[in-house]
Design a protein around this nucleic acid. Sequence first.
DNA 1: GTCCGTGCAAATCGTTTGCACGGGG
DNA 2: CCCCGTGCAAACGATTTGCACGGAC
Lengths: 141, 141
Amino acid sequence: MRQSVDVLIKLFRQKDLKITPQRRVIFELLAEDDSHPTADKIYQRVLSVMPEVSRTTVYNTLRELVALGELTTVEDLNESGTRYDTNGNYHHHLFCIRCHALIDISRDFAGVELSPEETAGYQIVKSHVTFYGICPDCQDS
Amino acid sequence: MRQSVDVLIKLFRQKDLKITPQRRVIFELLAEDDSHPTADKIYQRVLSVMPEVSRTTVYNTLRELVALGELTTVEDLNESGTRYDTNGNYHHHLFCIRCHALIDISRDFAGVELSPEETAGYQIVKSHVTFYGICPDCQDS
DNA sequence: GTCCGTGCAAATCGTTTGCACGGGG
DNA sequence: CCCCGTGCAAACGATTTGCACGGAC
């Protein structure tokens, strides 16, 4: 994840948001997860550490983290269930069309630009590339 | 849309799928719509022509068209409500982050390729570029 | 002591499914 | 005349919301 647990805690305190045991666990799990999990996957992982947690709390905390810019929702997949991106740096994606694994591609692509005629008057903000493929595991089976 | 109404009707007949008045209306609306509408938008448009139609029928027909490859679901947006793409040719997208207008970019981008080291063993199938921007209308307001 | 966060249950939204009836082939 | 397609209502999965209670500060 972009930020360590300590930094997230400091940020929450700074914004007058409270640090609860539930939030601490969620922060810890996110810090070591780069698999772009769904809210429910995160909930399941929290459950295995803290069995009394509520789904609502997980959703609330994820929403809070997105609002603070510490987490982003993955935009380039059409899956059921939003996946969260813990990588705060600008990057692209490589997606397995079989098992839905998703990994980051952290570099720029030259030439991905529109000429003035192509923009149709749009003021371009950013661009994003998604590669679709079949991961090594899925090629075997 | 990729196919004219006549071609879709012929295709449905060929697959032993029946041509009903409802389906005919849906075909006609799609043939002249390149706005990447949602199922509900299409339903509303069908309603204005044929007020007794059911939402289910619209969903069923759209699903059928996707199965036949005559329609694709837009994959690079994270919106509530799947949007449908009537453009059958390979293309990219330019999306207005304010009003969610979506237009097609029908050309290739050189250099959008991964080196063997970057693919992590994935067998690449295709790639898509999405541009995010602000459309002329939204720049004014 | 104050709120904010929690956690339940219920609501919501887009979509799918079960099923009886009617119309297209 | 046989089925498939229709259309209602109910089921569904992901997420949000309302609300009372308890814990972080």
